[in-house]
Amino acid sequence: MEDFEFINAMVLLANFVIVPALSYGSQLALATLSLTIIYGVLRFSNFAQADWMSFGTMATILFTWLFQSAGISAGILPTALLALPFAIIVTALFCLLIDRSVYSFYRKQKSQPIVLMIVSVGVMFILQAVVRFIIGPNDRKFFDGEKYIVHALDFKNYFGLEEGLTIKSTQLITVVVALVAMISLFYFLQKTKLGKSMRAYSNNEDLALLSGINPEKIVIVTWIISSILITTAGVLYGLDKSFKPFTYFNLLLPMFAAAIVGGIGSPIGAVIGGYVIAFSEITLTYAYKKFFVYLLPESLEPSGLMQVLSTDYKFAISFIILVIVLIVRPTGIVRGKII
């Protein structure tokens, strides 16, 4: 087996670092995109965004239950994917309702961004209450369909390796759906008149008004896009792991970190930031002992876990990176600000 040491090490890395980080990164990238678009167009840091993610996911779960009880399924795919479009509509409508009844007042007043941010804290409370009231604070799994694409055991047997590679179907679904969503979004922003006018509005509000761009329409489109992205992100995350309102709330911090690291307001930055944060969280908390055992001769084998940071600090990492970025390059990787 000596010759396979290198391959074993790589499979190990792929199984525990690369595949999970890719799927978590895709989920985070979508969520961050929604945050950054709100920031770019509506010009405030939306503290309620993680709870919109909870709300959208909850709506999906409810529709999934409805479909399941009606005997509708998507075959090998999770039923939640069928429920997703309906949940997006509900989420977008609720977003628009909140915008009409809450945010639009402050927009007309031309309030400071910080005021809108505090307002979003109020919305955050309300959303948390609504979600917990309807579906409760507990952990929920709503995955159905085929669970694995590649199973570790089959992989081991097939290739005759010591290490196995598992690819869950949710991981593949996540990456595919996220890619489709991102490509559609970039196409929309770069190539369509409406998308361009959104960028124009985000870049220079007064001039957009002078050009006859209707701000209210832009606002509506922004909330709809944000709902699509955040609900999709939440559903992918929930399928991959599970849905729990408090866990989702905690994703607010990695989302902000990803947005700022990438350059807040920049969609490309959001995607880059999402993957940077996801890969950092996982690479820095993975214990590399076994990896080095494969690669190094016995005499050099490490004694410790070879772990940079304990997994306890997984989500503190996003903030350590954030702090470093704020000190070294506050504008983020892609010089951010606008969409």
Binding site: V115, F125, I126, A129
Partner: peptide
């Protein structure tokens, strides 16, 4: 969970 709702509502109404 209603108290979260009350808190949010209070904040929004006050603002």
């Amino acid at each position: 969970h209603l108290r979260l709702f009350i808190m949010g509502l209070l904040l929004l109404l006050a603002l």
